[in-house]
Design a binder for these strands. Structure first.
Length: 302
DNA sequence: CGCCAGGTTAGAG
DNA sequence: CTCTAACATGGC
């Protein structure tokens, strides 16, 4: 049994992180148990199953299955640190938000909420494509079938744990195999095309790392199926650019509409104006605006 | 003939 | 450069 401790910043909420990870019961890429999360990942070619739970001023990682040498342990440690966004100092953002009526209450209510990463670029792009133009619930259904059908699995204590399907595997699929899962033809072609772009080395996380936001965005948008929204989403969740955010996102528009009591969705110029004070922190402003959607749904149901 | 969803593309104007 | 139809189906 291997235990790794990871110190956490003051402005960090493990509960809010778990809440996010609990968002859909159809999620197969991690499993939630009481107050901890189990995740399967590939480390130096080996499958490693670990848990993350909260400790005193730390996150504690426990390796449940798989052998790790010191290098491997370090890979898992930095993976979790990045996954839970422990590197970011949120204080400058909170300082800005306290001056803004739109976000003031939200950052107080959800203090310590951070961007849960999607560190695998391939996964991030495919997930964004699946979510294009459909409701989240259906997007999760598509993802569930996709992962069940094409992802690698292991069994641990009678439960299955899944890896996201590899680009190599997906690149060999015929569109019809995805149509069976209720992908639209368009989504099926995008999915396979993106996988082929990875296999052929036209795109990779390494290749984009170190680029400026603008450069990386342009690289991503070259790939069919990836537009501005998807590129920004990936740059936000995978590369953690704090200033990347999907300006045209429908959820974001609804959040602003609700919070400001507008009759219709805000236009692009209004959104740009709203984000102006958050230069360099747009991703976090977006995160908290998305979070506000839950409040609105639950209050409108009452 | 119900409208909108965490959009993107190709093609027209 | 901007605008629009087509895409496919679930959720409310």
């Amino acid at each position: 049994m291997t235990l790794i401790r990871l110190p956490v910043p003051e402005e960090f909420s493990f509960d809010l992180s778990l809440q996010f990870l609990r968002r859909s019961p159809k999620e197969l890429l991690h499993r939630l148990e009481h107050d901890k999360v189990l995740k399967l990942m590939q480390v130096e070619g080996k499958l490693i199953l670990f848990t993350v739970m909260s400790g005193k001023g730390s996150l504690n990682i426990d390796i449940l299955q798989g052998d790790l040498n010191p290098t491997g342990r370090e890979i898992v440690r930095s993976y979790v640190r990045e996954w839970f966004d422990l590197e970011t100092d949120l204080r400058p953002f909170y300082k800005l938000a306290r001056k803004d009526t739109l976000l003031r209450d939200l950052v107080r209510k959800y203090r310590g909420y951070r961007i849960i990463g999607q560190l695998d670029l391939f996964e991030s792009l495919i997930w964004a494509v699946l979510g294009q133009q459909i409701n989240l619930s259906f997007a999760y259904s598509l993802k569930q079938r996709f992962v069940e059908q094409f992802g690698q699995t292991i069994e641990h204590e009678n439960q299955k744990h899944y890896l996201f399907p590899s680009a190599a595997k997906v690149s060999t699929l015929a569109p019809e195999q995805l149509l069976l899962l209720q992908f639209s033809r368009q989504k099926a072609l995008y999915t396979i095309g993106i996988a082929q772009a990875f296999v052929e080395g036209r795109i990779s996380k390494d290749k984009l790392s170190g680029m400026t936001l603008q450069e990386a965005k342009e690289e991503l948008i070259r790939i069919k199926g990836i537009g501005n929204w998807t590129a920004n989403y990936a740059l936000m969740k995978t590369f953690r650019y704090p200033d990347a955010f999907p300006l045209e996102d429908a959820g974001l528009h609804n959040a602003i509409k609700n919070l400001m009591g507008l009759n219709s969705k805000p236009d692009v110029n209004r959104i740009k104006k709203i984000f102006k004070p958050y230069k360099g922190w747009e991703a976090y402003a977006t995160l908290y605006l998305w979070k506000s959607l839950e409040d609105f749904i639950s209050s409108s149901k009452k």
